[in-house]
Design a protein around this nucleic acid. Sequence first.
DNA 1: CTCGAGACTTGGAATAATATTT
DNA 2: AAATATTATTCCAAGTCTCGAG
Length: 767
Amino acid sequence: MSGDHLHNDSQIEADFRLNDSHKHKDKHKDREHRHKEHKKDKDKDREKSKHSNSEHKDSEKKHKEKEKTKHKDGSSEKHKDKHKDRDKEKRKEEKIRASGDAKIKKEKENGFSSPPRIKDEPEDDGYFASPKEDIKPLKRPRDEDDADYKPKKIKTEDIKKEKKRKPEEEEDGKLKKPKNKDKDKKVPEPDNKKKKPKKEEEQKWKWWEEERYPEGIKWKFLEHKGPVFAPPYEPLPESVKFYYDGKVMKLSPKAEEVATFFAKMLDHEYTTKEIFRKNFFKDWRKEMTNEEKNTITSLSKCDFTHMNQYFKAQSEARKQMSKEEKLKIKEENEKLLKEYGFCIMDNHRERIANFKIEPPGLFLGRGNHPKTGMLKRRIMPEDIIINCSKDAKVPSPPPGHKWKEVRHDNKVTWLVSWTQNIQGSIKYIMLNPSSRIKGEKDWQKYETARRLKKCVDKIRNQYREDWKSKEMKVRQRAVALYFIDKLALRAGNEKEEGETADTVGCCSLRVEHINLHPELDGQEHVVEFDFPGKDSIRYYNKVPVERRVFKNLQLFMENKQPEDDLFDRLNTGILNKHLQDLMEGLTAKVFRTYNASITLQQQLKELTAPDENIPAKILSYNRANRAVAILCNHQRAPPKTFEKSMMNLQSKIDAKKDQLADARRNLKSAKADAKVMKDAKTKKVVESKKKAVQRLEEQLMKLEVQATEREENKQIALGTSKLNYLDPRITVAWCKKWGVPIEKIYNKTQREKFAWAMDMANEDFEF
DNA sequence: CTCGAGACTTGGAATAATATTT
DNA sequence: AAATATTATTCCAAGTCTCGAG
């Protein structure tokens, strides 16, 4: 396959990514409910009228009905259910709508439509070595000889002295120089800094300049205070009543506690859902006394409204608290944080992400989850596994209790774990993203993505070849990989049926999730995707694909039922194994990271106008960010107050415009005066009027930018990509290059998380 | 292989804190 | 100073991927 070909292709991709997919979301509003019908009734036109937002609910119901009937004829019981489920996803899908075409056009004008070129960089100048990844054993552990150091000391000074990783050393992992770099002993200093490492120093710790541990070892010393448990249940005051079948009923403490979970959410949509109610009621009954069980037999006869009002009043009261009271609470929280919110890991005091144990409550599964509404029981010390180093002080369990287990496993990063009762999954307490242990991993993730950049062309050629393979498995693998690469789809592990909502990713796509259009809207070989992805967020997209892909899809779909797997010979294990062979450390999700980051870099290059001012630059950045969010399908529900706040902003803009007009008039008359008078004083007046006009212009422009931005962001969530997919060094480099203060892009938390990137990237960093 | 347990990343919503307006 | 709007932080569900046993 020629390079040419490749290039063309990537143009197509780009178009699609940056415009089309977005467009879809909008169009999709008109169509979203239709797709299921397609199958029934394929050419049932597409000119169906638009649903306005408010109509949505209704149409949703209708569709649910249709769905049911549709499945009566044909699919199995099991699937009928599934489909129903999927239909309910529409709640989520409603998110995807509106926000008109204006947005798109704008983006186009701004160059969104131009293709992200897949450049074949000779080499990325890698400023820094990738963290471990490519070279496990070569790197020397932090110090073999300090294995026995006394843990408690907190190193400060000497840490800083450690030599930087040198650039040369970086690029090529394999050749990396052997161990022995640290002459400076890492042996802890005497006790000096023991208990309280100086804040500033601690914050400045540059772990990225230190050696990493060998593969597998996560730390040598770990000490912490254990978790903070949820406060015990406080029974309701006597005055708060629960009614059953119209009559007051006093609940036993246990039953009452569970009842309050439900009562608190009365306004929430959850409590109207069938499964939620069913699951809740079943679990609630388990907590009841026998008498209660006998009496309370129907949830619909339960009246929680009084309880609900009580809680509302409580939260109202909390808001109304005096300053002192609020301050007191704040101080208490800080104290708790100080005591439990940090651990000591290898000489450094590090922030813990979630030191509080999840309180009991109702399980709020997303999409339509078969277990939603079930009771998440209270976690007790006896459920808790503590992990710390052997030589650390083991945290003490609350009086009268003991831990389930204390272990000393330095192959893992967690401090505390317990098993959650809903799906039996394990929950963990781990460190904050600003910690070394998370940061290193994050850095490594981006380095893997950068390595992919170097061989992505090869891989693309490879999968193109594989489309022609004689082996079905290979073809499926190649087509799936094409989707993952081109559309940034998730891998799509298989899930246990009945345990979770029915959602899919690439490998788990079913025939019913795509529609093939030999020709659509003037384009050839269009694949229409429509499926519930992670968190039951709808993925809807129409993509022109290469002919061979199209033919392959037709082949894969032959003789299959809608509910059959599209890639029946493939799963994520097979795919990832193959990827591993193509490049060490390569897995499906690396493509998402890679495509996200490379898109940001390209978009920034295209959208940033050198002579624009800072707000305009920031707008460009956000647009680039948004392109990525669209690619990754990161959507959000439009904020509840969206319309209102938009109007407010508009009126501000109008007001500003008036002001500006006034100022301009003033300026004009001042100028006129100056012409006549010609004295210094009037000239001065002119100057000051000019300034005023300028200032107002700037303010106006700022507001307008804000408005544009908000509109464009209506249902797009930027956070996830910013936090998890975009190599922060790209952003840092961009900020440095254009003199945009990093604070404009990253807030405090983000700056902490990306401290490594801020320190190491300069303006010519290339992803 | 396949399967399940385990560990860790990714995800949007809820909630709290802060800024801005009235 | 209260009310409201906006932003930051917390929360915890839901993914990905690895590993070890059969």
